[in-house]
Structures are given as structure tokens and as C-alpha cells.
Amino acid sequence: MLRILIAEDSDFQRLHLKKILSEYGDCDQAENGEAAVELARRALASGAFYDLIVMDILMPGTDGHAALKKIVEMQQAAGIGPDKLAKVIMLSCLSDPENILTAQFNEGADIYITKPYEPEIVVESLANLNLIDNPADSLDSQ
């Protein structure tokens, strides 16, 4: 089972994500950026860090950009190499080029999904991050 952190301020969106992701792993939930950073800190201290972080951007207080930056820095400070960092899906209603580019080129998000979204695109993303069976593997071997 995957270890998953969901950072999302909307109760509905958090529940929706948990429903999709629970099939694949245990989900911790944070209502804002500070809570996400704190959960990440505890997970790092416990020695069992997250496999996947799903991060909203627009949240009260510390937003998703800042929270993700801190979480990546924490992992790096703990000596986790670039290949071993938790995978990150940024999930936001913001669809402008600046937010999407910043998340993926400057902050370490692997995939950016724009709300509203269908559950299938989240599952497709898990496969593309090799967190679950990736259909591309068997297609490539044929």
C-alpha cells in the first residue's frame, strides 16, 4: 500500500480525493499548507515518508507552492536523493501557464492536474508515476 498525503482545504475535494486514492494506499489529510508541512515533518522523522503527495495550491496561510517547496527542502536536508523524493501531483483550479510551469520546473511537482477532473486522470497519473502498474510497460514490451 502506498503512503499518501493529501493537502487540500476544501472538505469536499479532500473527501473526493481520499475516495479515489484509498484503493491504492493509506491517506493522511491536511487542511492547509502548514498542516501538510507538519505531517511531512513527522513522517520524515518516523522513517516512513510518503510515496505520493497530492497538493492543492490555493489554501489559506501557506499555499501549495510554498508548502511543496518546504517539503522538498526537508527531504533534501534529510539526505534523500532526487530519485527517491516523494512523487508529487499538484492539483488546482489554476490553469495559467505561470502556475503550471512554476510547479513543474521550479518546485518539483511531477504532474499537474487542473480541476475539475475525473477520477480516471488521477489513476492515470499514479500509473505514469509508476506508483501502480503502468500500462506503458506492457505496451512497450509488445
Binding site: 490553469s95 503550471i100 513543474q104 520546473f105 511531477d110 504532474i111 499537474y112 492536474i113 487542473t114 477532473y117 480516471e120 486522470i121 492515470e124 497519473s125 500509473a127 505514469n128 503502468n134 500500462p135 506503458a136 510497460d137 505496451l139 512497450d140
Partner: peptide
Amino acid sequence: RIAASHVGGSQGRKLFFFSNSGDVFVK
């Protein structure tokens, strides 16, 4: 509408696109 993006990083990608469903799988 930009539904999703999977860009950047330092590794190349092989894409498999299903035209009828829109699914894209990346290796």
C-alpha cells in the same frame, strides 16, 4: 482546457496515446 501536464525533469519519455479515450501512458 489543459486537463493535465507531465513535463520537465531530466529523463525522456515514451508516450502511448489512446485516441478514443484520451488516455496517455508514459514510460
